[in-house]
Amino acid sequence: MDEEPGGDDVSFEERLRAARGRQRLDGPPAGKGPSDPFAGSPWAIGLRVGVELVAALAVGVAIGWALDRWLGTRPVFLSLFFLLGGAAGVRNVWRVFSR
């Protein structure tokens, strides 16, 4: 076996992965990536996207509100972080679907 080229290991791994994929031993099929636990159910996807959007927005608003309260600059940071939080929510959603 020692004379075998190193590539043999790779092809064995590939065949093993293909076989495991056929038997569905590895969860979702390869290519989807490991991070797609709720593909399929539209409700689950919708809920996930909604929570991600709202969570980022809530964090942004909370930080902006706290900064304003601390510095006494009422709508400045709130409006700034509202926009940033919304953008972060979109970034979260983007991350969910681009993995």
Partner: peptide, 17 residues
């Protein structure tokens, strides 16, 4: 700032879900 906010929102979305 967007990336930091997105990172900070992780525990929020995790717990709220």
């Amino acid at each position: 700032p967007i990336e930091i906010l997105s990172y900070l929102s992780r525990p929020v979305s995790l717990s709220i879900r």
